[in-house]
Amino acid sequence: MKWAVIVFPGSNCDEDAQQAIIRVTGDEATLVWHQETSLADYDAIVLPGGFSYGDYLRSGAIARFAPIMKAVRDKAVQGTPIIGICNGFQVLTEAHLLPGALLRNRDLHFHCKMVELRVETNRSPFTAAYQPGDILRIPIAHGEGRYFADSAILHELQEDHRVAFRYVDNPNGSSESIAGILSKERNVLGLMPHPERAVADFMRSTDGAGVFRSIHQYVTEREGAHAH
């Protein structure tokens, strides 16, 4: 299995994500520059955290126009699992691959700390390793992490069980304590906390490993089904 970790100018969690994937799954993980135009060889895509294009205009607003994003959209249509972490989540909303928006934190401060998340569903390629109700300790590091959507979108997310994670103690004022959401097809996840920073004992938590393990299992089983 091959993973692509997209690198924009200003990405700073790209190598963290790459090393977490290798540590947890043993898979091949490649850093892919934003000016590339094909992701045909990859089985899973990660849009990592950081400050793409310096977060000018809005976080993720410029990255949505990067050449690589057409390939990301194409892979989303094909059902490839795509995860956007922190800035990657912001990019996915700006690219309209996920609904809603990420706004400045409620207190206008940058938050960098360990938080608790509750798993809301395990019916996705990203959460199958967990059980609904599991509490995970995973760090956040963001200034614009407050998820916002109108009441119709929030109702749809709830009805379709597309809220993947909620904060136990909402640190940024997100609507309905939402920390991560799924696309309608359930193969795109946006997540503000950083699972790649919670995959080893020295990181003070291994709770994020299940995200990468779930994706690996999903792709492996999918490829096995196609082979038969």
Score class of each variant (00 low, 15 high):
Ile82Asn: 03
Ile82Glu: 01
Ile82Cys: 06
Ile83Tyr: 02
Gly84Trp: 11
Ile85Glu: 04
Asn87Ile: 10
Asn87Pro: 11
Gly88Cys: 07
Gln90Phe: 13
Gln90Ile: 12
Gln90Cys: 10
Val91Leu: 03
Leu92Gly: 01
Leu92Val: 00
Leu92Ala: 04
Glu94Cys: 09
Ala95Pro: 10
His96Ala: 11
His96Leu: 07
Leu97Ser: 04
Leu98Ala: 04
Pro99Asp: 15
Pro99Ala: 14
Pro99Cys: 15
Gly100Ala: 09
Ala101Leu: 14
Leu102Gln: 12
Leu103Tyr: 14
Arg104Ser: 14
Asn105Cys: 05
Arg106His: 15
Asp107Gly: 04
Asp107Tyr: 13
Leu108Ser: 07
Leu108Thr: 14
His109Tyr: 15
His109Met: 15
Phe110His: 13
His111Met: 03
Cys112Glu: 13
Cys112Tyr: 09
Cys112Thr: 14
Lys113Leu: 15
Lys113Cys: 13
Lys113Tyr: 12
Met114Pro: 14
Met114Thr: 14
Val115Gly: 08
Val115Trp: 11
Glu116Cys: 11
Leu117Gln: 00
Arg118Leu: 02
Thr121Glu: 03
Thr121Gly: 00
Asn122Gln: 10
Arg123Trp: 07
Arg123Glu: 13
Ser124Gly: 08
Pro125Cys: 04
Pro125Ile: 00
Phe126Gly: 00
Phe126Ser: 01
Ala128Phe: 03
Ala128Glu: 09
Ala129Lys: 03
Ala129Pro: 10
Ala129Arg: 03
Ala129Gln: 07
Tyr130Leu: 07
Tyr130Cys: 05
Gln131Ala: 08
Gln131Met: 04
Gln131Gly: 06
Gly133His: 12
Gly133Ser: 11
Gly133Asp: 13
Asp134Lys: 01
Ile135Trp: 06
Leu136Val: 06
Leu136His: 03
Arg137Gly: 07
Ile138Phe: 00
Ile138Ala: 01
Pro139Phe: 09
Ile140His: 07
Gly145Glu: 00
Gly145Asp: 04
Arg146Glu: 05
Arg146Met: 13
Tyr147Arg: 01
Ala149Thr: 02
Ser151Ile: 11
Ala152Asp: 10
Ala152Arg: 11
Leu154Asn: 06
His155Ile: 12
His155Asn: 14
His155Phe: 13
Gln158Pro: 05
Gln158Cys: 10
Glu159Leu: 07
Asp160His: 14
Arg162Phe: 04
Arg162Trp: 08
Arg162Lys: 06
